[in-house]
Amino acid sequence: MEIDDPRPVAEPLGRLSAAVGTPPTPQLRLRESPLAITDAAVLGAPPVLEVRNLDLWYGPQQALFGIDLDVRRNSVLALIGPSGCGKSTLLRCLNRMNDLIDGVRIRGQVLLGGEDLYDPAVDVISLRKRMGMVFQKSNPFPKTIYENVAYGLRIQGERDRRVLDEAVERSLQGAGLWEEVRDRLDQSALGLSGGQQQRLCIARALAVRPEVILMDEPCSALDPIATGRIEELIFELKKEFTIVIVTHNMQQAARVSDFTAFFWLGKLVETDVTERMFTNPRQRITEDYITGRFG
């Protein structure tokens, strides 16, 4: 896998640029991937989300330690790491879903467009409209396909049928589901297959035109074909959205993401451009994890 060179790399990647050019560790599977080519524009894009020195406690137990992370506009950031390393926790910090869990304490900052999400003046509800989320297990509402997609707009008080129709079609097309369901929008979403349900959930997140889409292991419950479709979809979506994806699947991270962040025991071990991360990680432990020596 080749990286376009030279190109401007922003901090913290700048510090790591020394690593670029070192002989790549053989990653045969990576070379098979047809997708992930981090393009130069992404590397230079401004950060949408900035996590600054974030600590998080579940009751007395600290789960995240001083996380610093940037998410660049129109990029895909993959959060990887073994189970319980805090990647999902971090993801849920980004739209304050952790607020719902009792006994969570957070210190530090998460900046969305320079504005701190944890500022007491921030309205959680309007914040969540800017951060779409797709969950590990597809969770369509027991409503019709149409109502599932229109939900986000309906709760904002949208009643105009034309606006809703337009948004539903746009979102379903965005999620690559339109052709499959256009004739049965008024049927229950629970009748769709697992992969279709997950794409419906993506469409539901797209409908409110968020700035960032958070995906929490979106393919872990899907078969390889459905997974492939979601991955293609992510590749399409990043043209318009910024995506943070948590995954256990190394190949997936390599295929879909521009940047990868590796977490271990609640700490951010390292973050880098995906190609470099998978070919030439700076930390021994990252390499061990990526190559499957533990996990």
């Binding site: 879903m97 509800i125 779409g132 969950f135 969770n139 939900y151 709760i155 959930c201």
Partner: peptide, 27 residues
């Protein structure tokens, strides 16, 4: 009612009341 449903609703930007009224109660 599965937590995932209310989480989905909240993540869509629904208020807790909207979530309760439109998702949890009908389900």
């Amino acid at each position: 009612v599965p937590r995932s449903l209310s989480s989905a609703s909240l993540a869509c930007g629904a208020s807790p009341w909207q979530t309760a009224w439109r998702v949890v109660l009908p389900t």
